[in-house]
């Protein structure tokens, strides 16, 4: 891509210069808020409110983190989120891969009808209230299964998996078929080992999606001890409800507000850091996922 600079006119050079400046600005817009929260989480809250960011070590503190670790709710939310996200990912990816493989087989009898059956859900759904009533009738309210099961199968993911399997060279399957292997056997011994990329992509998307979700948990879970991380965060960040355990003794209202402000920053960092650290390692797979999807 280095070779089309043969005859750039002056205006082109100016444009390219501004393009660079603009990209720098975009990068700053994205990073500065994140850095602000990160630095803010280590600052005494009154300093942050009156002076803004300060680099004077006297103003630094890890008090917000200490309070969060001492109180159980965020840590419990963390564990709950790991549990829900893992369960959701196993169910979702497992069943999606199986269905996607079957639907990738050209001469599967009834393929069209089954595909339509799945596709229809893309265009119409019962909506929030009937789904809630169903979950309630199934006795799943206040149960982790209400988080794991309802959204586990999405048409989009089935299409992704099917597209991937269709792209595998047919010769592999043909060769095995001639040897008399059934489709199931072919799946386990030949296809599955080759399916690692799609399994990985789907697992990443499912896990992260569930990790960052709060809405299903909000409507289906009542018991605070079952709350996933995001719901605990919502109480702290949006509802301004800080667990008494984080504040400690009875404190003046101003002090309480001061501390809850500080906890907000640390809570954001603790909740976001794992993914922030991990996603660069998976960048390749995210891009792959988007591309497989674009092939239809």
């Amino acid at each position: 891509m280095n070779n089309n600079l043969i005859n750039n006119s002056k205006t082109d050079k100016v444009l390219l210069f501004f393009n660079k400046i603009f990209l720098v600005v975009v990068v700053l817009i994205v990073t500065l808020p994140l850095l602000y929260v990160l630095l803010g989480s280590f600052l005494q809250p009154d300093v942050l409110l009156t002076k803004g960011l300060s680099f004077d070590p006297k103003h630094w503190t890890v008090d917000g983190y200490v309070r969060i670790f001492n109180d159980g709710s965020i840590m419990r939310g963390f564990l709950n989120s790991i549990l829900y996200s893992t369960g959701f990912t196993l169910v979702s990816v497992g069943f999606t891969i199986l269905a996607g493989y079957s639907l990738s087989i050209d001469n599967l009898v009834g393929k069209k009808i089954i595909m339509l059956y799945f596709l229809f859900t893309m265009f119409f759904n019962g909506g929030m209230v009937p789904t809630y009533l169903l979950v309630k009738d199934l006795g799943l309210l206040n149960s982790p299964w209400a988080i794991i099961l309802p959204g586990a199968i999405t048409v989009w993911n089935i299409i992704l998996a099917r597209t991937f399997f269709k792209g595998l060279p047919n010769e592999l399957k043909e060769a095995a078929r001639i040897d008399g292997a059934s489709d199931a056997k072919i799946f386990i011994s030949i296809i599955l080992p080759l399916a690692k990329p799609i399994v990985f992509v789907l697992a990443l998307y499912s896990f992260i999606g569930q990790w960052n979700a709060y809405f299903d948990a909000m409507i289906y879970l009542e018991d605070k001890s079952l709350y996933p991380l995001q719901l605990v965060l919502r109480d702290i960040l949006i509802q301004n409800e800080v667990e008494p355990g984080m504040i400690g003794d009875q404190l003046a209202r101003a002090e309480l507000q001061r501390i809850s402000e500080m906890i907000k920053y640390s809570a954001i960092v603790i909740a976001s850091l794992p993914l922030m650290i991990m996603y660069p390692f998976f960048q390749k797979y995210f891009e792959k996922g988007v591309m497989v999807g674009s092939l239809k």
């Binding site: 497992g94 199986l98 059956y117 799945f118 009937p130 089935i158």
Partner: peptide, 27 residues
Amino acid sequence: KNYILYLFLLPAVVLVFIFNYIPMYGV
């Protein structure tokens, strides 16, 4: 001969039936 392929589809079909189609009736 290929009933296993349909077995593969079963969990997804059942989940979609329960959580997508029953609410459509519920509406």
